[in-house]
């Protein structure tokens, strides 16, 4: 089983090379095909134990990882913050070491603190897969976004991708920025200046506060949710003003090229960052993202789970 993959962990997209990203996407191609067959299950991770350790709430990502693990024949355990000993004052390190003492092979971690996956990966023999850490990275989301763009447009290099919304607090934005730039896309960030500080330009992207200038040029728009739970009041004056300045309304969507893809990592706040009809329109690939997420996560589990430490 020589794949050319050498990482036991997937912590972020920033650390991946373009070749590694492409390897994940190509591996996902094979798993996506599998999803159309009668028997959707393969024995790749048979006998391995995967723990879905979600310290922050999640529906989409947790379910997707769980289903991906089932399809690869792994045994799966789900732990959430409220049902774990973290509520009894146990440290993350001790909880994780206990899971390892039960011979968990793969730990899928969602955590509110940036760097929590790095912290565990350097202390555990088990594979650690980052399912979102604070505002840092959400690598499988970015990989499935890249997969979806590549599937629909046949390439990523040279495309203009606009990421719109709350960038500052978004791990999805960061992972997408790293991945898109590595594969040669042009990236423009759009949103209120308080949530899209100019400092982002140092990452190699453009920053714009004029959504109407950006939409006509875009080949892909990726809309991000306004994260009420992370924000203090002073970041912008209110939802109505946000919609007026940055919402992808039905009117605004007319400025898009006909073949521009509309993406959203979910959960959607209909009528806020995106109008309901636009979210459900022909250009929307939001549900393709979810379907592709399964194949991409199977690929990631397969590649990292095959590394023996």
């Amino acid at each position: 089983m020589s794949t050319g993959w050498t990482r036991k962990d997937l912590l972020g997209v920033r650390e991946l090379s373009a070749d590694e990203i492409n390897l994940v996407l190509e591996t996902a191609d094979a798993f996506k095909q599998l999803g159309t067959r009668e028997i959707k299950k393969v024995p790749a991770l048979r006998g391995k134990t995967l723990v879905n350790f979600f310290v922050e709430p999640s529906t989409r990502t947790r379910t997707s990882f769980e289903l991906a693990a089932f399809r690869l024949s792994a045994d799966v355990i789900n732990i959430s913050a409220t049902t774990s000993s973290l509520t009894k004052g146990e440290t993350l390190k001790d909880t994780a070491r206990n899971l390892e003492a039960l011979h968990a092979d793969i730990l899928v971690l969602r955590h509110s603190s940036a760097g929590a996956p790095q912290f565990l990966a350097s202390r555990l023999k088990a594979s650690v897969i980052n399912a979102g850490d604070g505002a840092h990275e959400h690598p499988t989301q970015a990989l499935l976004d890249l997969y979806t763009i590549r599937e629909r447009r046949g390439k990523i290099a040279g495309l203009h991708v606009a990421i719109i919304g709350d960038i500052l607090f978004s791990r999805v934005a960061r992972s997408n920025i790293f991945g898109l730039l590595k594969l040669g896309a042009h990236v423009t960030l759009v949103g209120p200046s308080t949530l899209v500080p100019r400092e982002f330009e140092k990452l190699g992207v453009e920053v714009s506060y004029q959504i109407d200038d950006v939409l006509p040029k875009a080949d892909v728009v990726n809309l991000l949710r306004i994260q009420h739970e992370r924000q203090r009041r002073e970041y912008f004056p209110g939802i109505r003003e946000y919609i007026r300045l940055f919402g992808l309304t039905k009117e605004r969507a007319k400025r898009l090229k006909p073949d521009c893809l509309i993406m959203h990592p979910g959960p959607i706040n209909r009528g806020v960052e995106i109008d309901s009809e636009v979210a459900d329109g022909l250009q929307s690939v939001i549900l393709d993202q979810v379907t592709n997420g399964l194949a991409v996560r199977m690929a990631v589990l397969y590649l990292c789970g095959g590394i023996v430490t």
Binding site: A114, D133, A135, H136, L203
Partner: peptide, 18 residues
């Protein structure tokens, strides 16, 4: 300073740390 844990600049932006 708010809930900041690191200097605000390139690395806080890159790492998503407050």
């Amino acid at each position: 300073v708010g809930n900041g844990v690191v200097h605000e600049g390139y690395w806080s932006i890159l790492l998503g740390l407050p």
